[in-house]
Design a binder for these strands. Sequence first.
DNA 1: ACCGGGATGTTCT
DNA 2: GAACATCCCGGTG
Length: 213
Amino acid sequence: MAPGAGLPAALARSFFGRDPREVAPDLLGKLLVRSDGDGPPRAGRIVEVEAYCGGADPGSHAYRGMTARNRTMFGPAGGLYVYFTYGMHWCANVVCGDEGEGVAVLLRALAPVAGVEAMFAARPRARRETDLCSGPAKLCQSFGLDGTFDGADLVAADRGVWVGDDGTAPPDEPFQTTRIGLSAGADHPWRWCVPGDPHVSGPARRRGTAAST
DNA sequence: ACCGGGATGTTCT
DNA sequence: GAACATCCCGGTG
């Protein structure tokens, strides 16, 4: 991993004022990085994302307006919105758009790139590398992301977390489907994957591999 | 490989 | 009291 890395300025700008449906596919191929100064940094390449479109999107936490839980979504772009769900799991989003809009991109799956040992240590149940970050709650567990990271600033990397760019371009033709696990707003095709990547979360991977092989 | 159900507790109605 | 942007395990084919 590049020493002294932080969120590249151009990448940071790409979050501000921009629709999550544009930001989401552009995030494919970028790196999520966490450096806690206490061991080797962890990094993973983003291979699956979903866009959540604020007050106009019944599938979004922001649909019914701001609450104590989702206030980070309504903050400035470049924030990390981390929420708790199903009594057990954390999920992480990159806030984009304009302040007050409540739009964000959910990180659903990563291909581990660095710090794999730390990820296995954080997920004792994982047997294979594809078990580490193939789901929104799995990747948070592998990276040690929980509620203390909600509201972290990805631009300043104030909590040691940022999004990096190593020059890998997003796929020319990302695999696009409807979002997973929703009861409302499930009809919108606002989920994007790297076609055929084995780290994409379960049901999606099946469709992805079928389409690419 | 695929499917079904239980875990677990915060958040919002 | 119901829903929940999920995951894991044990069943069956």
